[in-house]
Simulated assay, not measured.
Amino acid sequence: MISVDETKISHSRLDDVQGLGLGVFLCALGMHVLTHVGLITGQTAGIAVIISYLSGWSFGAVFFVVNLPFYALAYRRLGLEFTLKSLISVTLLSVFTDILPLGFAIQTINPALGAVIFGATVGFGLLAMFRHNGSLGGLGVVALLIQDRYGFKAGYVQLISDAVIFLVSAFLFPLSIVGWSLLGAVVLNLIIAFNHRRDRYIAT
Rank of each mutant, 00 (worst) to 15 (best):
I2D: 13
D5N: 14
D5T: 13
T7M: 14
K8E: 14
S12V: 12
R13L: 12
D16M: 10
L20H: 08
L22N: 04
G23L: 04
V24A: 02
V24Q: 02
F25Y: 09
F25Q: 15
L26I: 06
A28V: 04
G30S: 09
M31N: 07
T35G: 07
V37H: 03
G38F: 12
L39D: 02
T41M: 04
G42Q: 05
G42F: 01
G46S: 03
G46A: 11
I47D: 07
V49W: 02
I50K: 04
S52R: 00
S52I: 04
S55M: 12
G56C: 01
S58G: 01
F59C: 07
F59Y: 07
A61T: 02
V62T: 06
F63N: 00
F63R: 00
L68E: 00
L68F: 03
P69T: 08
P69W: 08
F70T: 03
L73M: 13
R77V: 13
G79F: 15
L80S: 15
L80D: 14
L84C: 13
L84R: 12
K85Y: 02
S86Y: 10
S86R: 03
L87Q: 05
V90T: 00
T91V: 03
F96I: 04
D98Y: 09
L100M: 09
P101F: 13
P101W: 13
L102N: 12
L102S: 12
F104M: 14
Q107L: 15
I109P: 03
I109D: 05
G114R: 00
A115R: 03
A115G: 06
V116P: 00
I117E: 07
V122A: 06
G123T: 00
G123R: 00
G125L: 01
L126E: 05
A128G: 12
N133Y: 15
L139M: 14
G140A: 12
I146G: 01
I146Y: 06
K153M: 00
A154V: 11
Y156K: 14
Q158P: 05
Q158G: 08
Q158T: 14
S161L: 10
A163T: 08
I165D: 05
L167R: 04
V168S: 11
A170S: 12
A170C: 06
F171E: 15
L172S: 08
P174C: 12
S176L: 15
S176C: 14
I177N: 13
W180S: 07
L182G: 08
L182S: 09
A185I: 08
A185W: 08
V186H: 00
V186A: 04
V186Y: 03
V187Q: 03
L190M: 12
I192E: 00
I192K: 00
N195E: 10
H196D: 09
D199F: 11
D199M: 09
D199S: 08
R200I: 15
R200S: 14
R200M: 15
Y201L: 13
I202K: 13
A203Q: 09
T204A: 14
